[in-house]
């Protein structure tokens, strides 16, 4: 496996590891972006107004039970004929990735907004904030930890499912596993598996870091730099 990864031949050309990695990242980023554009506003709306709670819970549960592999294959067979060439495989796969990324983003956004201290919201309304101002000045910042953990879940889901989608000819690191399986090349499969796992871990770590800087210290209870004299042990333990 190590040999496979170190072989320069596998790092050049149109299906080099680098290219597959970039493809994987592009699919992931694109799907998350679209999912966020759809999921965040719905989550905010339901969380802010309290309407449609039942809908959100239902969608989240149903999608957890859906077998992703079956869904990917089904969609590719059904909608692929509508697209030309390359896109025939990419578009249906991306649709599935988006579909799977929406629930964690949507439900966590909703749950985050709901979980904001009611007294803080009440105070904001009482001070004369308009509804949108309440949402963006109070509810969203306070809900950020949960919203980000929704993104974290969605990202892992998408990276994982993008790997599977290699089966229906999507690019990305999953190719190494699927092609390796077809060619009975375990080294190649293992190399792909390790790369995918490493990618998932790194991205997860990255989102964790973003969260640490984006979320107000008032919420995470971490100490601020001003008290640099004290050891800041507690700051490392944010799960």
């Amino acid at each position: 496996m190590i040999d496979y990864l170190l072989d320069p031949a596998h790092w050049t050309g149109s299906d080099s590891i680098g290219t597959l990695l970039v493809q994987h990242l592009i699919y992931t980023g694109l799907s998350l972006l679209v999912a966020a554009v759809i999921g965040v506003p719905i989550g905010l709306y339901v969380g802010h107004t309290g309407k449609g709670t039942f809908f959100i819970a239902g969608v989240a549960n149903a999608l957890r039970a859906l077998p992703t592999l079956g869904l990917v294959i089904l969609l590719v067979i059904v909608i692929a004929p509508a697209f030309a060439s390359e896109l025939a495989f990419v578009i249906p796969s991306l649709i599935v990735l988006v579909l799977l990324a929406i629930p964690p983003i949507m439900t966590n956004t909703y749950a985050g907004v709901r979980a904001v201290d009611a007294a803080a919201v009440d105070a904001a309304v009482g001070m004369g904030y308009r509804p949108l101002k309440v949402l963006f000045a109070v509810q969203v910042p306070c809900a950020l930890p949960l919203i980000l953990s929704g993104f974290r879940g969605a990202t892992l889901q998408v990276i994982s499912t993008a790997t599977i989608a290699a089966y229906v000819s999507l690019g990305g690191l999953g190719r190494l596993i699927i092609d390796g399986r077809a060619q009975n090349d375990y080294d190649q499969m293992l190399a792909g598996a390790v790369l995918v796992a490493a990618l998932a871990l790194l991205v997860d770590l990255g989102i964790g870091l973003i969260g640490r800087f984006a979320v107000s210290p008032g919420l995470t209870r971490r100490r601020i730099r001003a008290t640099a004299a004290q050891p800041v042990l507690a700051t490392t333990a944010t799960a």
């Binding site: 994982s160 999953g174 792909g192 390790v194 796992a197 998932a200 871990l201 799960a239």
Partner: peptide, 22 residues
């Protein structure tokens, strides 16, 4: 414990299926 198990949870399933035999 939660850190380790959380890490394990991030490994995509297909990758884990492939890595376990080795």
């Amino acid at each position: 414990v939660l850190g380790t198990t959380g890490l394990l949870y991030t490994v995509p399933s297909l990758a884990l299926f492939v890595m376990l035999p080795s």
